[in-house]
Design a protein around this nucleic acid. Sequence first.
DNA 1: TGCGTAGCGGAACGACGCTCCGTATTGTTG
DNA 2: CAACAATACGGAGCGTCGTTCCGCTACGCA
Lengths: 180, 180
Amino acid sequence: MARNEQSILDAASRVFSTSGVDAPVREVADAAGVGMGTLYRHFPTRSDLMVAVYRHQIDECADAGPQLLESSASPFVALQEWVHKYADFLTTKHGLGNVWQGDAAGLSALHQLFLDRLLPVLAELLEAARTSGEVAADVTPYELLRAVGDLVAWNVNDPNYDVLRIVNLLLAGLRQPPTT
Amino acid sequence: MARNEQSILDAASRVFSTSGVDAPVREVADAAGVGMGTLYRHFPTRSDLMVAVYRHQIDECADAGPQLLESSASPFVALQEWVHKYADFLTTKHGLGNVWQGDAAGLSALHQLFLDRLLPVLAELLEAARTSGEVAADVTPYELLRAVGDLVAWNVNDPNYDVLRIVNLLLAGLRQPPTT
DNA sequence: TGCGTAGCGGAACGACGCTCCGTATTGTTG
DNA sequence: CAACAATACGGAGCGTCGTTCCGCTACGCA
């Protein structure tokens, strides 16, 4: 029982990293040597499977927030570095962009996880950078989290699209007061 | 023949605007009172159908570029207003974000149309704003076009996500020199 | 040894984009 | 005006998804 759950998890992270995050559920089941029924009893939805696979990395990313806030030269630098970390995570999982697609695609569980774990962290970083006077723009943490996600998530290793550069562009915008 | 093509086009724009851009092709065929075969002979791909439906609006958007450059107070303002126009277009077509998803989803024709028509326009606007000294950041027109697209395209009328604000954030970033 | 139940596999379902082929509808000839 | 191409058409069918469902296996306890 738990034996199967673990082998499914192992298979899933193996399959997701080789065939991409969009790999068919069947492929994961096959790789785990398990039937569809078994897989779906443990993970009722594709999204639940992804949550299980990525939870650890998301936690790691979340934990890095307060840490960076302490160790960095300024709140803004911390914010910047955290966003880079977050962007890196999403970039390596091509196709994880669906997370922000709202109701669609049955990724609600993963969506929720992002909101629960990452939103508070970003909120804290943003607030700190705002009180230190380094951020003047008028944005909510949610908007920023989603914006960076959108910017990054569909990156398909396009040599003409430098993700880091674009993300930094957005961050640079934070320094300036809102335009009408 | 051409009679059918027109009714398919009409049906498509009707269906896309009511059921969303992701509406099944079958639905368009039914709405047009036409079989799948007929639809696919005129528009061999979902993407071709969308190209046909949106070409006019895309052309309009493209034509607005040089126009804005003349009439606006400064190149940067023109750039800003054009980007707003572009963003508005994408926003009203929920789900058109797939366009930037690269190879996927068989949207290549639409992708190409964006590149052909909009990229040169944005390039001109960006170049003008750069020579006027209002843009210091190091971005290619392609990156900017895609970034704005990504930012906007999955908007699902989320009251917590103000598209215009986010786009302006990115534009504000353009003013500043690149950070390392 | 028998039986109840929990855990399992994989066929099957509905939705999708797209293809294919038999049929209707033209329009051109003798 | 009739016979016959050539063209246009409709919709069933295919392969791929995510997900569901059901018959079967294998184990625990009497």
